[in-house]
Amino acid sequence: MSDNKIANSTIAVAKQMGKRVRIDAAAWIVLGVDFAVIVAFGAASDWRFLRTENLQALAVNSSQIVLLATAVALILALGEIDISLGAVLVASSVASGQVLSVLQVDSTFLILSIGLISAVIVGSICLAVNAGVLLILKVNSFIGSLATLGIFTGTVYVITNGSNITGVPITVQDAFGSYRLFGFLPAPALVAVIVALGAWYVIRRTRLGVHMIAAGSNRDASIRAGVKTQRIVLITFLIAGVIVGLAGFIDLSRFGTTDIAGHQTDALSAIAGAVIGGTRLNGGKVSILGAISGALLASILQTGLIVVGLPSFYQLIAIGIVLIAAVAIGQRRKDVRN
């Protein structure tokens, strides 16, 4: 490839990025749908759905899936995928719970920081393994994470012998999982929002973000343009690992125990959320706002259907249809533009 072509492709990437900052249509549409659905459930439930306690519960319930969707959006931006995130979440919550129940420290500060740090460390180790399988062994990230999904899950079951961790100090619930800042803002939801803002900032406003999207749109071109793509992939996976570790700690702190059997479909739900919000599966196009809105849609439908008194399983059917429709429409728009 000649220098001219490289320059052209770099300009094209830059141009596309400029466009994307201005019209991130899919994300805003899905966010609008979220609000419309909330209002509709409110009206259908005699405004019970819009009560503060219900909205707080909704925010807490969706904080984990929002974090997972953010993490997976970063990985999808690179054109890679990870279906082991649910297992990583479980692994990090188990690590955190195990450390806390063995150490039995007293101070609130120590409990929160030790718990958080062990969850985050294990989360990033797991994703470092995934990055290693991808970069060193050159195994496709789908198959690699399919294999590590089994490895992480199996390891967790061997360590815990199949039962959930008990004896986690109740402080994690009081001081974090059930804590309401200023009396109304749930701490886990606040963490999710801050992390999402951070991810948005990295993608849109930093060199790392530009390189991530470049590596996702055209790996070969970005290598030739001097981007150290291997390093970018590793850093992105580590960031995702930290985010999933946070989600694992939230999982532990909400109920004071782990939930090792309960997160099997989390990774695919997170991918569905990200894709509904306009993130492309084969890289180069990512929207954090969209990932959050898409992930929220599933939670809103699930909680709302229960409040209204319908079986919550309709949520699955709705999300399935929305998922296919969102991608089909996105594809149509892309065809028109080309």
């Binding site: 569905a272 894709v275 084969n282 699955l316 059917i317 709705a318 399935g320 249809i321 296919i324 089909a328």
Partner: peptide
Amino acid sequence: LRVNGFIATLGAGLIIKGY
């Protein structure tokens, strides 16, 4: 509709599971 197979079958699976 040119929806990626991964997404199309993920969606189809959710719909059948809901049913």
